[in-house]
């Protein structure tokens, strides 16, 4: 199955990846090869098979007390921010 360059661009935009034209060409080939490989799953009859939505469904889900506990102090949470304004993360303007 061959992915077109347009399709690669569409997926890249969904994934918020900016790719160079060389990357687009290379990825179109690589992804097509991988998708060809995974097509072998079509050989299997999976009708009536439950998807594995949890790795160990038989094991009880742990619950914890609904109790207020301290969170990360704002300064520590913001310490890695590329840009901050007061107690906020700062980003380029969204609305022109």
């Amino acid at each position: 199955m061959a992915l077109s360059p347009e399709e690669v661009r569409r997926i890249a935009s969904l994934a918020r990846l900016r790719l160079s034209p060389e990357e687009e060409t290379r990825l179109a080939g690589e992804l097509s090869a991988i998708l060809d490989y995974v097509r072998q799953l079509e050989e299997l009859d999976v009708s009536g098979v439950e998807p594995m939505t949890h790795a160990l469904a038989s094991v009880e889900t742990p619950f914890r007390e609904d109790r207020v506990t301290p969170g990360l102090p704002a300064d520590e949470a913001l310490a890695n921010a590329p840009a901050r304004a007061g107690t906020c993360f700062q980003v380029p303007r969204i609305i022109e």
Binding site: I11, A15, L17, I34
Partner: peptide, 26 residues
């Protein structure tokens, strides 16, 4: 903001994470 996302992720991720993000998104 849109350019910041795209440029950051283009410069920050290597070839394999990009490949897998693309495959997974697809």
């Amino acid at each position: 903001l849109a350019d910041m996302y795209g440029e950051t992720r283009d410069q920050g991720f290597g070839a394999e994470p990009k490949r897998r993000i693309m495959l997974g998104t697809y």
